[in-house]
Every structure is written in C-alpha cells, then in structure tokens.
C-alpha cells in the first residue's frame, strides 16, 4: 500500500498516538527514577552528599550518548504526540458540525477519555514551563552554579568545588584566580590555561531553591502537584487506550492491562508530586 496512506489514515494516527504515548510512559519512569534522587537526603547523611548524588546523576543524564539519543526520541515523541493530538482533535470537531442540544456523555464514557486534548494541552504547557525552569538552565544558563561542598579542613569550615574525578578544588583559590572556569563547568589552570578538572552543575540547588523560594515556592509547588494530577487523568485513559490502539485487546489480559494502567496513572504522578511537596514542606 501507499506509504502516505499509512501515515495519514485514521488508524495510523492511532498507532502513532499509542506508540509515542507508550514511549513517553517509559520516559516518565526513567525521569521519575532520576527525580527521586532529589529525595536523597532521606538516605544520605549530609545535604552535600545528597546534592552530589543528584548532580552526578544529572551529569550522567546530560552527557551519556545513549541517554542523549533517548532524549531526542523523547522530544520528537512529545512533539509528534502533541501535533497528532491537535490534528485528531480538529478533525474530530469537524466530524460533528452540529452538537446535541442535550447530551449525556457521562453515561457512557469516563471524564478523562473525553478530555484528553485539554489534559494534554495542560501537560504541554507544564512541560514547556518545566523545561524553562530546569532543562534550559541546565543547558544554556551562563550563571548556572557549580556544586560546592563544605568540609572542615583544619578546624575551619572551607568551601570546595566538587569535581567529577572525585576531587575537590578550594573555592577560595578559584576566587583568587589560581583556577579559571571556562565553558561553565571546566576548571583550567590559572597560568597554563590547561583544563584540569570538570565540575558539577548544581541542579540540585536550583531545584531546592525553586520550590523553597519565599514568594513563589508555595504556588510553584501547588502548580506542580496540580499538573501531576492532570497527568494522572491523562494516563488513566491513555495507558490502556494505547494498548487498544495497537490492537492488544484480549479478554484474557484486558483486566491486567487495565489494572496496570490504573496503577501507573496513580503511582507515577503521585511519586512525582511527592518531590516538590517534600522539598517545600519537609526539607530543612
């Protein structure tokens, strides 16, 4: 058959929605696993260790080639999922030019399934703002801080930059010009202008400050939690729906898929939501 039809047909659109959606579900799991490192203070003795733990993870995620490829797939998936969703919604609106004067859709469908476009739009806005807040800072912000750690050196607490080889560079020496920082993260010898070590971008600090800032910390926390609730509803319908779209419907397994979907749509957003709540309310 013609390739174009495979891309354009109503069923093909379903496949793309389903495939990108399921991939994004996988992404969510990965992203969640990473974000949960923000709770590292729960199992690390000092806040600095916790921060390091998280920042090491963040560095891995931004530099590992495999992860990089996955991240591009993710961006494309989000775009495709959104664009396909918009096309579907517009076409579907056209399929019913006149609406019913009296309609009771709640008699035959769940709320989430009827509002995927709205839920999706909210999630898209969230993703954009979320990326502006963190992803863009991590990638492009010239003033992105590097992680430091305070060690009691000779009785007096002293601040050090942590480097990726497990070493430390005293912050004072950098401030005095013995080391220079190029490309935001690289420590160069002050005289020889040779790269010596690599620091960690302190995403942990950025995150904690984001949710703890005096004026906006609470509203941001609330918005994040609300967004996760929206995500939950989106997943509540989307997860099982993806399987149906791909033709996986067998009475033997439908119960299982449905239950996994329910579990996924509650547990994953809930775990995401715990993080800002923990940071804002519990983290000292």
């Amino acid at each position: 058959m013609a390739k174009s039809a495979f891309l354009k047909s109503s069923i093909a659109k379903k496949y793309w929605m389903a495939l990108t959606g399921l991939f994004l579900c996988l992404f969510l799991v990965g992203h969640l696993a990473g974000n949960l490192q923000l709770l590292a203070t729960l199992w690390h003795t000092t806040p600095d260790d916790a921060a390091l733990h998280f920042n090491q993870y963040a560095l891995f995620m931004t530099t590992n080639p495999a992860v990089k490829i996955l991240s591009y797939v993710t961006y494309i998936s989000i775009l495709f999922h959104a664009i396909d969703g918009i096309i579907l919604t517009l076409q579907n609106k056209k399929a019913r030019p006149i609406n019913y004067a009296m309609n009771k859709p709640e008699r035959n469908t769940i709320w989430a399934s009827r509002n995927m476009a709205v839920l999706g739009t909210v999630i898209l806005v969230f993703i954009v703002s979320h990326m502006v807040s963190f992803w863009a800072k991590m990638h492009f912000d010239e003033n992105m801080p590097l992680q430091t750690i305070t060690i009691n050196a000779g009785g007096a607490p002293q601040e050090f930059y942590v480097t990726t080889d497990g070493g430390y560079i005293p912050k004072a020496q950098v401030d005095q010009g013995a080391y220079k920082i190029h490309d935001r993260t690289s420590f160069y010898d002050g005289q020889a202008n040779v790269k010596i070590k690599e620091g960690y971008k302190d995403l942990y600090k950025i995150t904690i400050e984001f949710f703890k800032q005096p004026t906006y910390g609470l509203p941001f926390t609330i918005l994040y939690v609300l967004s996760m609730i929206v995500l939950g509803f989106h997943l509540f319908h989307g997860f099982g729906s993806a399987f149906q779209s791909l033709g996986a419907n067998n009475p033997k397994y439908n119960g299982l898929i449905k239950n996994i979907g329910k579990g996924f749509s509650i547990i994953v957003p809930a775990l995401f939501a715990i993080i800002p709540l923990y940071i804002h309310f519990l983290l000292k």
């Binding site: 109503s10 579907n92 859709p105 779209s245």
Partner: peptide, 24 residues
Amino acid sequence: LNMVRQMDEEGFGNCTNTGACEVE
C-alpha cells in the same frame, strides 16, 4: 485497507478509545 480508506473519506472522526460506542 479499502474499508478504512472509505471510512476516512466519508468524513467520520477518529477513534480515541472513549468506549462510548460499545456502551451505546
């Protein structure tokens, strides 16, 4: 392939698995 092509040409909307059809 033919039935789906014709269905699309007729101007029906796309399925989003809401399940209303099955109930009604």
